[in-house]
Design a protein around this nucleic acid. Sequence first.
DNA 1: GTGTTTGCAAAGTGTTTGCAATTTA
DNA 2: TAAATTGCAAACACTTTGCAAACAC
Lengths: 145, 145
Amino acid sequence: MAYYVTGMIVKRPFSDVLDRLNVVGLRPTRQRMALARLLFDSGDRHVTAEQLHQQATHHGVKVSLATVYNTLNQFTASGLLREVAVDARRSYFDTNTDPHHHFFNQDTAELTDILGAAVAVSRLPDAPAGTVIDSVDVIIRVRAN
Amino acid sequence: MAYYVTGMIVKRPFSDVLDRLNVVGLRPTRQRMALARLLFDSGDRHVTAEQLHQQATHHGVKVSLATVYNTLNQFTASGLLREVAVDARRSYFDTNTDPHHHFFNQDTAELTDILGAAVAVSRLPDAPAGTVIDSVDVIIRVRAN
DNA sequence: GTGTTTGCAAAGTGTTTGCAATTTA
DNA sequence: TAAATTGCAAACACTTTGCAAACAC
């Protein structure tokens, strides 16, 4: 089975995507399967809901924007995706759920991973009284030079 | 001259706030002066536009929400404030413009400064080709324990 | 007086929700 | 067929904008 993802032919066992949905207990509907393929079948991705909806449309997948939002939120709640708040305008969804940090290009609005341990946060402070640390987000904002 | 700011009496030379506006070339209108006092006359603050507007209203300052937004944006563009993107919902404006990082309490939506060098980012990666680093934002998300 | 700033209401953006119709198990 | 999911349109929260009236210099 071969299908197009972002312009190149990718061979992937169908069960990959199906397994992901089964593991988190989401029914493998046509829409969820299609979105999961677009998200997970081509390496690490950073997309907004709008971008994923457009991509789905270009690939002939009929799905509403509301369902894209709902699906992204369900995937995030299930731990399949990670949400990255870059600015007050939009959220990005990252298929890489391992702890890592990001570059954000302020000119192109593009979000990219910072590889491995290229950044290290040393000397983490204690959380304020009565709280525990949930996550540490590092966003390095860059611009064209 | 004494006036109320967040519930306590604060004495501050009027010229403080006036100087700030003069330095960045913004006319000291009644609204801008009042908002600047609320922002800068009581230590480091983290406010949303909505919060500042409510505070102004409680202090008897008549100003529209649109003007609060415009003023916060002008102050940010002038370097008087720093904008912190915490989630896709709202922006915080921080009166502390020195490089520093933040705790964000996900339960209370409260943003607080991380003191001095309590956090250090070591080994900054190179920016992607063709770009330069503009700023490094570290947000440590915490929640009640 | 002239150019700037304000307030209002309307428009804009990104996201969520209510609900009937459809699909899945 | 019972429960979950979808699509649509409407609602939503936050923010920006157009423009006439008010203001600062």
